[in-house]
Computed example of a mutant assay.
Amino acid sequence: MTMKDLAELRAWKPYEITADTSGSAPGSLPEFLASHDNFNAFLTEKKAIVFRGFSVAEDSLDPVLDQLLPNRLAYVHGNSPRTKVGSNVYTSTEYPQEFTISMHNELSYGHRWPSRLVFYCATAPATGGATTVVDGELWLASLEPEVREAFAGGVRYNQNLHDGIGLGKSWQDTFETDDRAAVEAFLKEAEAEWSWQPDGALRITQIRRSTLVHPESGTEVWFNQSDQWHPASLGDETAAELAQILPAEELPQSVTFADGTPIPDAYVLQVRDRGLENAVDVNWAQGDLLVIDNVAVGHGRGAFTGDRRILVAMTD
């Protein structure tokens, strides 16, 4: 990538549609969507779209989601804490509000991932709390050649899901079932390796790609969560404390290169930081919606004060 290419990529931002500019009245988003049957192609072109000023109330959200997400998916095998609040509608990641959530593509560590996410603002924060988005093509291009080359062979994700008591999520919460056979069927289809531990915990290993070619645009994008799964992203102090409690192979989640060799701390920190440096803020007002192409665009969250209630749903 030349500097000009990077500059062009950095000029990208989500496309905004407001009730005023669309000629629509507040509350009329379902009608607006019904009259635009080329939305899929439009989203592929724009990568992320924000709807503002349509005053969508939480109790009228379902009809909008039905149009934007024809096949709403459950958050199965998700690794972040969240609460199910409706028909495959969830709270966004319930992570302490004083911390930033780094950039990632939803379920990029899985065998399958959603093609599209919708975020809805039920309660806007007092300050901060933007949902941040980053162009995956820019994220990949911003990495040093040495890092891109090192990740070319893919990554290996390792999970330890407890049986109800322990660090991180339980396997029951992760898969939304207490049926071991159902979990094993899911993991078999996902081409993962797994083993049940004597204490009832579940250990999972998956080898995945580090980049992905968008199925419609043909663009190669950064598409893995190595930085979020790597202890270095926790900070030196937290990582050291975890290392005293658990050996590396028993951490709730960890990551290596696909062949099992360690990923240098500096590499995952560069990945994390370049994603954050190139992110664009989507600031919230009550009733706003953000739709993103989950392959083309990564997302995260800024720190905030006050109450913040963002709901999220996804489709295949």
Rank of each mutant, 00 (worst) to 15 (best):
R308V: 12
K46C: 12
R272Y: 03
F119W: 06
P70N: 13
G128P: 03
D135A: 04
I310D: 07
D273C: 03
L167Y: 07
I263P: 07
L73W: 11
D265A: 14
S22A: 14
Q270K: 08
K169M: 07
G287L: 06
T211Q: 06
H162V: 05
H162N: 02
W113C: 15
I310K: 09
G300K: 01
T256G: 02
Q67N: 09
A182D: 14
P70M: 10
R308K: 09
L33E: 02
S102H: 08
P198N: 06
E193M: 06
P63H: 05
S35D: 13
V271Q: 00
T261D: 10
R203Y: 14
G306C: 08
N158H: 12
E184H: 10
W284R: 01
L9Y: 00
K47E: 13
P114R: 12
A122E: 12
G128S: 04
H162E: 02
E94A: 13
G86P: 03
Q270R: 08
H36F: 12
E193D: 15
S195H: 08
V50S: 06
L276D: 10
N105C: 08
N79K: 01
A7D: 05
V183P: 11
G53C: 10
D37F: 03
F304K: 06
A141G: 07
R72C: 09
R203K: 15
N38A: 14
Q97G: 15
